[in-house]
């Protein structure tokens, strides 16, 4: 489909209201999903909850391949399929739901910069630990990633994915980094976020934005996920305001709706740290 046609379709889609049966797709929660996917998925869920848009969560072993961009999560709204946080934010904006409308241009630029920081640092660090740290690869990643497949496809697909991620790490210059350096990067990123947050409830004071959703998704997932060592979560625990920020988002957007049947994932968050 040409770009113009795609634009046209998305404009038509914009006119339609948010349907009740909007669904978010992500890999299987208990056996399959990996740290980075879980973080991205939680970020999108947090964003949609902040926008007050109802979403059902569906767990599919082939979510990664169903996604038009090959990345999870993606949402299926009406007859539209949109993947990843950035495009989803654009998509909801077209439908008239936005969290960053109240920001001025400078703040918006700052928000985008911090979102890039999170994607470049936290997401990449998660991918690095998942696929480049031999311990984690052997003990967690390979088993979980290949769990839906039978032999010998499980080995082939895990190897293929590992190779793909490593090639990406090579391209962005992370391949030569040691695990300690990666932890240091995460620490620096957290420090920057902590300084920006300060004593405010959210990054841009009273109103949460997509940056809050993104940061929450990553930090909360890192804090609640059992890895081979807890060094990664320890880095975040050094920053008290980030911890209370996570607690705040969880309380305001996940716990208050425990009564909602839609949020099958919300029960997990009240349990505290769990094995994801």
């Amino acid at each position: 489909m040409s770009l113009a046609a795609e634009m046209f379709v998305s404009q038509i889609a914009a006119a339609e209201p948010w349907p009740e049966n909007a669904t978010l797709y992500q890999p299987l929660k208990d056996d399959q999903i990996l740290l980075s996917d879980c973080a991205s998925s939680l970020a999108v869920q947090a964003y949609l909850r902040m926008c007050n848009l109802p979403i059902n969560v569906s767990y599919r072993a082939n979510a990664e391949y169903m996604s038009p961009s090959g990345k999870v999560p993606f949402i299926h709204v009406g007859n539209q399929v949109v993947s990843e946080l950035g495009p989803i934010v654009q998509f909801t904006k077209a439908k008239g739901h936005s969290l960053s409308d109240g920001l001025d241009d400078v703040q918006r630029a700052e928000m985008k910069a911090y979102m890039e920081l999170v994607n470049n640092m936290l997401l990449t660090a998660e991918l690095y630990i998942q696929w480049c740290d031999e311990n984690t690869v052997a003990e967690i990643t390979r088993l979980r990633y290949s769990s839906p497949y039978s032999w010998p496809l499980n080995h082939i697909l895990a190897f293929q994915k590992q190779w793909e991620v490593r090639r990406k790490m090579n391209a962005i210059g992370w391949a030569g980094k040691s695990l300690a350096q990666v932890y240091e990067d995460v620490s620096q990123c957290c420090q920057a976020l902590s300084q920006r947050l300060g004593t405010q409830p959210y990054f841009f004071n009273k109103q949460p934005t997509e940056l809050d959703a993104l940061v929450f998704g990553h930090l909360f997932t890192i804090l609640t996920t059992q890895l081979t060592s807890n060094e990664l979560s320890e880095k975040i625990k050094n920053y008290g305001n980030l911890l209370s920020f996570c607690r705040r988002v969880e309380q305001n957007f996940f716990e208050e709706r425990d009564g909602d049947s839609t949020a099958s994932s919300s029960s997990r968050f009240s349990k505290g740290p769990s094995l994801i």
Partner: peptide
């Protein structure tokens, strides 16, 4: 056979999208 299914276009129906992925 290792079969890899995917959508031909973004506009593929969701029923076909649901079948995407790898199987043996």
């Amino acid at each position: 056979v290792w079969r890899e299914l995917g959508c031909l276009a973004r506009t593929a129906s969701f029923a076909v999208r649901e079948e995407s992925g790898h199987s043996l």
